[in-house]
Computed example of a mutant assay.
Amino acid sequence: MAYVVTENCIKCKYTDCVDVCPVDCFREGPNFLVIDPDECIDCTLCVAECPVEAIYAEDDVPDSQLDFIALNAELSKEWQPIIEKKDALPDADEWASVTDKLDELQR
Rank of each mutant, 00 (worst) to 15 (best):
E74M: 09
E39K: 15
E58W: 06
C40Q: 03
E53A: 10
A48M: 08
D16W: 14
N8L: 11
L45F: 12
S64K: 13
C40F: 05
C50R: 01
E58L: 08
A73P: 00
L71K: 06
C12M: 09
A54H: 00
S64T: 15
A54V: 02
V47A: 01
I41F: 11
A54N: 01
P51I: 09
Y56C: 10
D36T: 14
I35S: 03
N8K: 15
N8S: 13
E78W: 09
Y14C: 14
D16T: 09
P62T: 09
D19W: 04
V18Y: 11
N8Y: 14
C46V: 07
D19T: 02
P22W: 15
N31M: 08
V47M: 13
E84T: 06
V5P: 00
S76Q: 03
E53L: 06
C40K: 11
E49R: 11
C46T: 07
R27P: 05
E39T: 15
A54E: 00
Q80Y: 12
L71C: 05
T44R: 08
I55Q: 01
C46Q: 12
I83T: 15
V5A: 04
E78Q: 14
N31L: 11
F68N: 00
E84S: 09
A54M: 04
S76G: 04
D63M: 05
I69W: 01
V20D: 05
E74R: 15
N8Q: 12
Y14E: 11
L71H: 02
E53R: 07
K86Y: 12
K86T: 15
C46D: 08
V34A: 03
D59Y: 06
I35A: 04
A70F: 07
V18H: 05
L45D: 13
F32I: 05
G29Q: 05
C21P: 05
D36S: 12
D59R: 10
